[in-house]
C-alpha cells in the first residue's frame, strides 16, 4: 500500500522538464512529460552518474545529458544498445498536484 506525499503543483515542473527531490541518500528527479504525466527516478545515470533531471525529455524517455544514454521513464531501463537501469518510484498527478510514494524518504541506494 503506497502512502502518497503531496510535494508540489504540477505547474511547478516545466512541461517536458524535471525538478529534484533531495533525500538523505541522493536526489530523485521528478519528470513531467508532454502528456502531463509524472515519473520519479533516481537522478543518477548508471553509466557515469550524470544528472538525468538535466536531460531532454521526449515522449516517455529521458536522455542523460552527459553521454546520451536513453532511459524509459516507465521502467527506468536503458534503451537501445546500452545496458543498465535506474530505480523508479511511484508518482502521479491528482487534481493538478504531484504526489510521490513515501518510500522516497526511506529509500536506500540501489533500492
Amino acid at each position: 500500500m503506497t502512502n502518497w506525499i503531496d510535494i508540489a503543483a504540477l505547474d511547478d515542473i516545466p512541461p517536458q522538464g524535471a525538478r529534484l527531490i533531495r533525500t538523505r541518500t541522493g536526489c530523485v528527479a521528478v519528470f513531467r512529460t508532454h502528456d502531463d504525466r509524472v515519473f520519479a527516478l533516481d537522478d543518477r545515470c548508471p553509466h557515469k552518474g550524470g544528472p538525468l533531471s538535466e536531460g531532454i525529455v521526449a515522449g516517455h524517455t529521458i536522455t542523460c545529458p552527459l553521454h546520451n544514454w536513453v532511459f524509459d521513464l516507465n521502467t527506468g531501463i536503458a534503451q537501445g544498445a546500452d545496458d543498465g537501469s535506474v530505480a523508479t518510484y511511484p508518482a502521479r498527478v491528482e487534481n493538478g498536484r504531484v504526489l510521490v510514494g513515501s518510500e522516497i524518504i526511506a529509500r536506500r541506494h540501489a533500492a
Partner: peptide, 16 residues
Amino acid sequence: RDEFSPLADFRLEAAE
C-alpha cells in the same frame, strides 16, 4: 529561479 532549486527536501525527514 525556481527551476534551479529542488522541489522538495526530505533530507531531514526521519527514515522509517
